[in-house]
Amino acid sequence: MAAVASRMLGLRVAGLLRAACVGPARASWSVPGVAPRPGVVWMPSRCGSSAAEASATNADDSFLQWLLLVIPVTAFGLGTWQVQRRKWKLKLIAELESRVMAEPIPLPADPMELKNLEYRPVTVRGHFDHSKELYMMPRTMVDPVREAREAGRISSSTESGAFVVTPFHCTDLGITILVNRGFVPRKKVNPESRQKGQVEGEVDLTGVVRLTETRKPFVPENDPERNHWHYRNLEAMARTTGAEPVFLDADFKSTVPGGPIGGQTRVTLRNEHMQYIITWYGLCAATSYLWFKKFLQRTPGV
């Protein structure tokens, strides 16, 4: 009897230890050869499984911690990249503006040289062929004074019209090129309405070299049949007029009374990199703060 009582006591102590590990959950066990006593319960041990679950949870938290750290690191890298892009863009804009203000040079005889001369002023001598005018439309007149005056306004007083592109036969080079003579309002697109502005005879002309351009999103396709050109496709324009794919924007001094208004060159390079810098560095700062609060400053035991 004493041996049985001792065995029963040992089993009861073991049961109490198991209860401490698993809490209030209970499972009744029977021991062969020993009659169960009222009030004595046996519970399966979960200490080992709890340790495994805790280890798995810690592993998941560690993986999540380093995974989420990718967000602020990536945002910081993109912000730094935009800083470098902004430096490059500012340098490019300064270079193009210096080209526009440079002294004119004679138009090179080799068209391949023009690839490195965009926005560079050149001089030519020859005469216009007004019978083959092309119209780039719709366009608004480039007027720096008006644009500065109306900066920030919701509405604008700009008038819609077209750029008149006219074949120009270069006497010295023996080739015909294309010259954007400038802006005319819509009511003056028809050359019959501006006969006084149709320059005759040989003239000396200064213009800015422009290269071909690709169609931007939402810009309509060119319509040679209607003589409506929405973007500068030099190959197609040259085929239509029989000229070489060489294009100049005539300067303002080429303007004559009743004719197109020259000087319609606009150096258009978007520089929005500062906005991107603020966005990416701001995202980096916000996500870094949240990551710090979540993983480095969390309450012990949570």
Rank of each mutant, 00 (worst) to 15 (best):
M8Q: 09
G10P: 00
L16F: 09
R18Y: 03
G23P: 00
S28T: 12
W29G: 03
S30G: 07
V31T: 09
V31Q: 12
P32R: 11
P32E: 05
G33M: 05
A35D: 07
R46P: 00
A52K: 10
S55W: 09
N58P: 00
N58H: 08
A59V: 12
L67G: 06
L68V: 04
I71T: 15
G77A: 15
G77T: 15
G79V: 05
W81T: 09
V83P: 00
R85D: 04
K91C: 00
E97C: 01
M101G: 11
I105W: 02
L107R: 08
P111D: 09
K115H: 14
N116F: 13
V124E: 06
F128V: 07
D129I: 10
H130C: 08
Y135M: 13
Y135R: 15
Y135S: 15
M141H: 10
V145P: 00
V145Y: 03
A148W: 03
R149W: 07
S157T: 13
G161W: 02
C170H: 11
T171S: 13
G174D: 09
T176C: 04
L178S: 09
V179K: 03
F183M: 01
K187A: 11
K187N: 10
V189G: 01
P191R: 06
E192W: 01
Q198R: 15
V199I: 12
E200S: 15
E202M: 05
R210F: 04
E213S: 14
T214C: 01
R215I: 09
P220A: 15
P220E: 12
P220F: 10
Y231P: 02
M237K: 03
M237E: 14
T240A: 13
G242F: 07
V246T: 12
A250N: 03
S254R: 02
P257F: 05
P257Q: 07
G262Y: 03
T268V: 15
R270G: 14
E272W: 04
Y276R: 04
G282D: 05
L290M: 13
F292T: 08
Q297E: 14
P300M: 07
V302M: 11
